[in-house]
């Protein structure tokens, strides 16, 4: 499969990597896509934000 990915494919990879390691080829294709795409880095920031928020919520349920 060539390294070019559509936004839809890149978005699916960004969701998948929250739960599993991506194959190196998918990882590379995603990095390349994020370098040239204007829309997908926004989705990436949303996913990173959700990751951070879930971590803070987890801490909130078990305060020190």
């Amino acid at each position: 499969m060539p390294l070019k990915r559509t936004c839809k494919e890149a978005t699916a990879l960004m969701v998948a990597r929250e739960d599993r390691s991506l194959a190196w080829r998918d990882h590379l294709a995603l990095r390349l896509h994020l370098l040239v795409c204007k829309a997908c880095p926004r989705f990436e920031r949303q996913m990173l934000g959700m990751r951070q928020q879930l971590k803070q919520w987890r801490n909130y349920t078990m305060p020190d």
Binding site: T6, C7, K8, E9, K38, A39, C40, R42, F43, R45, Q46, L48, G49, M50, Q52, Q53, Q56, W57
Partner: peptide
């Protein structure tokens, strides 16, 4: 997504997630 797999409209900016989550 459009038929070619690209976004119709880019996703929204969510601002600072750490601030929201506090």
């Amino acid at each position: 997504f459009k038929a070619d797999g690209h976004y119709v409209e880019p996703p929204a900016e969510w601002g600072n997630p750490e601030q929201q989550a506090s």
